[in-house]
Amino acid sequence: MRAVVLDRPGGVEELHLRTLPLPEPRPGWVRIAVEAFGLNRSELHTRLGLAEGVSFPRVLGIEAVGTVDLDPDGVLAPGGRVATMMGGMGRTYDGGYAEYVVVPRAQVIPFESSLPWETLGALPETLQTAYGSLTVGLDLQAGQTLLIRGGTSALGLTATTLAKDVGATVLATTRNPDRLTGLTEHGVDHPLVDDGRVARQVREVFPDGVDAGLELVGTPTLPDTLAATRVHGTVCFTGMLSNEWLVHDFYPISYLPRGVRLAAYGGEADDLPAAVFQRHVDRIASGDLAPGPVHVYALDDIRTAHDDLEHNRRPGKLVVRTR
C-alpha cells in the first residue's frame, strides 16, 4: 500500500510517500481501506515536533473514512462504510495517511451514505470535537449567545452549524475581512474581524457579554475571549490554531474575569455517538446542512496540503483522497 511516512519532525520535505506492506489486523482490530482522510492541527503539531508520545518513523493521521477490508473476528462485514479517529492513530501506531489503516474495532463508527468520499472525509474528527465542545464543554442551550474564536476553521464552521441547530445566536471571528461574507453565508449572525480586541466588539452588540465562548485560536486570544463572556458564562478551550496552548505563570484571580468559567474539551471516537454522526451525514445529503468549504488533494500532493494547513491558506477542511 501507499502511505505517507514521517521519519522525523521537520518541514513538509520530511513527509515521504512510500510503499509499505499491507498491515495485518490482530484480534479486536479492523483493517480499513481508506478512501479519504482529513488534515488536522494535531498532525501539524506532530510534524513540527510539538507533539508528545510519538515514535518515528510514523504514518500520520488521526482520522479516516473508508470501507471495512478485514475484520478477523467477523464482527464487521467487508465493504461496510466506516469512520475512525483518535485512539493513538498517527502517534502510537500508524494512522490514516495511507491506503489502508488498522485500528481497534472500538473506535470504528459504521454508517450509511452515498455522499462523496471527500465530503465524508471532512467530518469525523471535526464533528466529534465540535459536538463535544458544545455539549460537554459548554452545555450550549437554545437562546444563548456563542462566540467562536477562529470561525473560518473547519472546526469553527462545524461548530456554527451545530450551534445554529441548537437555536443559539452565533458570533464568529476571522482575521481576514474578505472572509466575513463566507461566515454570514454559513449562518453566522455576527461575523467579526479579529483585531485582537474582540471583547470590545462583542460588548457593543451584547453589553453583558456572550453566554459562551469557543476558543479555537489558543492562549494568545484566550484572555480576550474570556473578557467577552458574561458573569457565569463559560469559555471552552478546544483549539490552538496559533500553535500556542500554554498559559505561563497562571494566576487564576488575575487571569480569569470575575465569575467567568473556563473549561476545556478533547475527545475520542466514542464521544461521538454513531447516531449523531449518521444524522449529520443524512442532513448534509438532504441539503438541510451545509458541510462548509472542503479543499481536496491527491495523496501525491500531501506536502502541498500540509503547507496550506500550516499557513492557514484555505478556510474550512482540507481533505486528501487516497484513490
Results as ranks from 00 to 15, higher is better:
Val193Leu: 05
Asn176Ala: 12
Thr221Ile: 04
Val198Gln: 04
Asp189Tyr: 11
Thr238Met: 01
Thr173Leu: 08
Leu180Ser: 13
Met240Arg: 09
Asp194Val: 07
Thr225Gly: 00
Leu192Glu: 00
Pro223Lys: 05
Phe206Gln: 08
Thr160Ile: 06
Leu192Phe: 03
Leu226Val: 09
Thr181Val: 12
Leu180Thr: 15
Val231Cys: 02
Val170Leu: 08
Thr219Ala: 12
Pro207His: 05
Val188Cys: 11
Val166Ile: 15
Gln201Asn: 04
Ala168Trp: 14
Thr225Cys: 01
Arg175Met: 13
Asp178Met: 08
Asp178Cys: 07
Phe206Ala: 08
Ala228His: 04
Ala163Trp: 14
Val193Tyr: 06
Leu222Ala: 09
His186Phe: 13
Val202Gln: 06
Val231Thr: 09
Arg200Tyr: 04
Gly239Arg: 11
Val205Ile: 13
Asp195Pro: 01
Leu162His: 09
Ala228Leu: 01
Thr225Arg: 00
Asp224Glu: 15
Phe206Lys: 07
Gly182Gln: 03
Ala172Phe: 15
Asp224His: 12
Arg197Phe: 10
Arg197Lys: 12
Val231Asn: 04
Leu162Trp: 13
Pro207Cys: 03
Asp195Cys: 03
Pro207Gln: 01
Asp178His: 13
Ala212Val: 04
Thr174Trp: 08
Thr229Trp: 01
Arg179Pro: 05
Glu185Met: 06
Arg179Leu: 14
Pro191Asp: 05
Gly167His: 00
Glu215Val: 04
Phe237Met: 12
